[in-house]
């Protein structure tokens, strides 16, 4: 909100609220989306753009019904979901303990930091073709790419969470005779949970990206394969249905993790 006009905006806001049930910003957001759909629907009809390339909301909606009803949608979705879940689960199993080790041992950090940071920064998706050579064009190479995409944000954030543990809490625990294991399980792990979850949240997007890129690159099944099929046959409506489904999946999962994260972070609001 612009500072200079905040006072007048607040007053306008009150007048606005008296007339409409929704807040001003929500109304504008809705109108803006509505406008987008109207333009998208009307522009091809008026010949402003070629509808073959843009499709239309109504066509996409119709295509969605077709896709869900037939098209083996659930078969493809299940394959992609399996790749995602397997890669993610494997990465969690490896990355949280590794991040904990790096967060608690200075020497482990010094040794592993350079290769880790390089891989965290670098696009791990470039390893996809190598994975395909190693593991073939089936699910294994996608699982590997998801794994590689997901593991580094979780390691880095787990490490950061452990390192940022409040030394005063550790000292208080020690004063009551806490063992190293006690300190790890009762102070470091709960203390870094918000950070770990943040890593997981960032990883969700990378994981979804990994599945889609992996399947676009080479595959015979999966939502990425369907995207490629409909892209090359110019079925833009069906292409968009799949793209939207993937987006909704990513959005929902990210929001769920964010919700959990803010729950967990609530304890430490000071």
């Amino acid at each position: 909100m612009a500072m200079a006009t905040s006072k007048s905006t607040a007053m306008e806001g009150r007048a606005w609220n008296a007339r409409f049930p929704l807040s001003r910003s929500t109304t504008i957001s809705c109108l803006s989306v509505l406008l987008f759909f109207v333009v998208w629907q009307v522009a091809p009809e008026l010949g402003l753009v070629n509808g073959r390339f843009t499709s239309q909301p109504t066509k996409v909606a119709a295509a969605a019904l077709e896709v869900f009803a037939s098209d083996d949608f659930f078969y493809h979705a299940r394959i992609s979901l399996t790749e995602f879940v397997l890669g993610f689960a494997l990465a969690l199993v490896v990355s949280v303990p590794l991040g904990a080790l790096l967060g608690t041992s200075k020497h482990a950090r010094y040794i592993l930091d350079p290769p880790l940071m390089a891989l965290y920064i670098a696009p791990t998706l470039v390893l996809l073709p190598i994975m395909v050579i190693w593991l073939g064009i089936g699910m294994a190479s996608k699982v590997a790419v998801v794994f590689l995409g997901v593991i580094f944000p979780i390691i880095v954030n787990t490490m950061a969470g452990m390192r940022e543990a409040d030394p005063r809490l550790i000292r208080a625990a020690r004063s009551f005779g806490a063992s190293r294991l006690d300190i790890f399980t009762r102070i470091l792990v709960p203390g870094s949970l918000p950070s770990i979850l943040m890593g997981v949240r960032l990883a969700v997007g990378r994981g979804v990206l990994g599945v889609v890129v992996g399947e676009l690159y080479v595959s015979q099944v999966g939502v990425g394969h369907q995207l490629m099929t409909y892209g090359s046959s110019m079925r833009i409506d069906r292409l968009l249905v799949y793209a939207l489904v993937i987006s909704v999946f990513g959005y929902t999962l990210t929001s769920l993790v964010r919700l959990l994260e803010s729950r967990v972070r609530n304890w430490r609001t000071e």
């Binding site: 005063r168 009762r186 203390g191 000071e270």
Partner: peptide
């Protein structure tokens, strides 16, 4: 266990 310490305020576990 023969001693116990009271710290400044930030030593409670926030969770």
């Amino acid at each position: 266990p023969d001693r116990a310490m009271v710290f400044q305020e930030a030593s409670l576990l926030p969770w």
